[in-house]
Design a protein around this nucleic acid. Structure first.
Lengths: 254, 254
DNA sequence: TATGTTAGTGGCATAATGCCACTAAATCAA
DNA sequence: TTGATTTAGTGGCATTATGCCACTAACATA
C-alpha cells in the first residue's frame, strides 16, 4: 500500500511554524559530457543558503505544481542549466535520511544525463543564472573535469551522489553504447573508441571494438567520409534508433 | 543543490484544509521467495482506504520520526510482514508523478527483498495484521505465485512496480548468486540449480552451472552430505560472505 | 542382482573477445 | 616524385567462459 488514510499530517509547532512530517523531496542531476579528451560533469556554485558558495550538482525541489513526474523535474533542471535536451537520462537511485540536510529529513532522487558537449555561455538561457520558475539562482555554472570534481568538496552529500552516478556510468560503459550519446553525430569509429577509452580510463583494442559494433548492428553508415589532418579518411556513422536500450552480450575486458 | 531556502511552503486552501506542496513519500517492497517450485511474492490485502480491499505490495509512508533512512523504512516494512530479516535488499527505483495516487502528487521508492521461504502464520508478528507503530493494518498477508500476482489487479500502480522489480530480478539472476539467497542454507548444487531454473523459467545445463560456481569460488563446501530418497547423496554448500556483490563475468545463455 | 534415480565429471563445440601484424589512403617534407 | 609518417581498417589465430552430451558414481528398491 502507499500510506494510511489520513496519515499525512501537518504538525504545527507551538510557535505556529509548520513542521514537516513528510521529508523534503529534491531531484539532482549529474550531467556528463566529453570535452577535450576529458569526462566532465556540470557543477553549479550555490548562491543561496544553505551551503551558499559551495559547488553542487544541479537540482532542486520537485515542484508538484508544474512537474508531471520526477523525470520531467529532471528534464527541467537539465534544460535550465544546459539549454538543451539530453539523449540519455537515467535514474541512478534515491537517497533519503535524517542527516544529509542540516534542516532535517530529506530525500533526493538522483539522475544522470549524457550529452554531446555544449558551451555553457552560448547555450545556457538566462534562467540558469537567475531565479525563475522554481529555479534556484546560482553564482556560476561550469563543466568540471571529473577527477577535479571528485576532489572538490561538494554541498550536502553530493560527493557521494556523484560517485554513485559515476560508478553506474563506468559500469554500463562496458556493455552499452553510452559513449555514442556523448559525442556529436555523425562520428567516426576512432572518435567513438576514444570516447570509450576516456570513460574507461584505459585503451580499447581497435579490431575487437569495431567487430563488436559490426556484429551488434547498432550503427548506420552515413556514406560520408571525413579527413582530419594526415592519415586515411574515415567513414562516419550515426546511432540507430532504439540503441539506448541495447546491451552487448559480454563486457569489455575488465 | 537540494532546494531553495524557504521554498518549502505549507499552502493552506480557503477552507482551511492543508494542501501539500511537497509530494507524499512512501516505500514499497517486493518480497520474493521460492516455495514448492514457484517464485512467490508477498502481497497484502488493504484494510483501509484508499484502494481498500485490493491486493498490494507491502509498504507505507516514510516515518521521519522513527526511520533513519529509506533503507531502514524498507527493513521495517519487511520485518513487519515476514518477521525476519532478508539477506538481500535492493533498491529498484523511484516512481513519482501527479496521477499514481488519486489524492495528488505522490512518490514511492521501490525495493525488493529476497529470502528463504518462511510460513507467514508462524513467523509474522501480530503487528502485521494490526495497526501499530506507523504500520498499516491489513486484512490478509499471503505468498502469491508470481504469475498469479501479475494477473491480479493491484492497488495504485503496484502492477507496474511489481513488473519493474521482477524484470530487475530476472535480469540479475543471469549473472549473480541471487537464487542462493532464496533457499535454506546449506543447500545442494541441484537445489541451487533448480532455484535458478524457477526464476529464469527455463532449464540450466548442469555441468556448465557447476563449473561456473567452482571457478567463481563463491561457495563453501560444508563437508556434510545429504541423501533424499533414491539416488546418490549430494554435497552441501553455504554462500561465502560478501557474495551478494559478486558478478559473474558472463551471463547464462539468453 | 538388476533397475531406476540423482550426483557429479570428461571432453569437445561454440561464441565473443583479446592480440597482433598487416594493408590502405591520406599529409608532409625533402 | 618519393619516402616517411599518420590514421583507418582487416585477417587470422589465441583465449576464455559457456553450451552440450555422454559417461561414471552412489544410493534405494524390488
Amino acid at each position: 500500500m502507499d500510506f494510511d488514510a489520513g496519515s499525512h499530517r501537518s504538525i504545527v509547532k507551538e510557535d505556529g511554524a509548520p513542521m514537516r512530517a513528510a521529508p523534503l523531496v529534491t531531484v539532482d542531476v549529474g550531467i556528463f559530457t566529453l570535452h577535450e579528451g576529458f569526462l566532465k560533469v556540470l557543477l553549479v556554485k550555490r548562491a543561496m543558503a544553505p551551503e551558499k558558495g559551495k559547488w553542487a550538482l544541479p537540482g532542486g525541489i520537485v515542484d508538484t505544481a508544474c512537474d508531471a513526474s520526477l523525470e520531467s523535474t529532471a528534464k527541467r533542471k537539465l534544460r535550465a542549466k544546459t539549454g538543451v535536451q539530453a539523449p540519455w537520462l537515467e535514474q541512478v537511485g534515491t537517497v533519503g535520511n535524517a542527516h544529509r540536510d542540516p534542516r532535517g529529513w530529506s530525500l533526493t532522487v538522483m539522475y544522470f544525463a549524457l550529452l554531446p558537449y555544449v558551451a555553457l555561455d552560448a547555450a545556457a538561457p538566462a534562467s540558469s543564472l537567475q531565479a525563475g520558475e522554481g529555479l534556484s539562482p546560482v553564482e556560476a555554472v561550469s563543466w568540471v573535469v571529473i577527477e577535479e570534481a571528485l576532489k572538490t568538496p561538494l554541498a550536502f552529500d553530493h560527493d557521494e551522489l556523484l560517485v554513485q552516478a559515476l560508478e553506474r556510468i563506468r559500469s554500463k560503459v562496458l556493455y552499452t553504447m553510452m559513449p555514442a550519446f556523448m559525442i556529436d553525430s555523425p562520428f567516426t569509429l576512432s572518435v567513438l573508441q576514444r570516447a570509450y577509452e576516456i570513460i574507461m580510463g584505459r585503451p580499447v583494442e581497435k579490431k575487437a571494438f569495431r567487430r563488436r559494433l559490426e556484429n551488434a548492428g547498432v550503427l548506420i553508415e552515413t556514406g560520408e567520409m571525413v579527413s582530419e589532418g594526415p592519415g586515411r579518411p574515415a567513414m562516419t556513422y550515426r546511432i540507430k534508433p532504439g540503441v539506448q536500450g541495447f546491451n552487448f552480450s559480454r563486457q569489455l575486458a575488465p
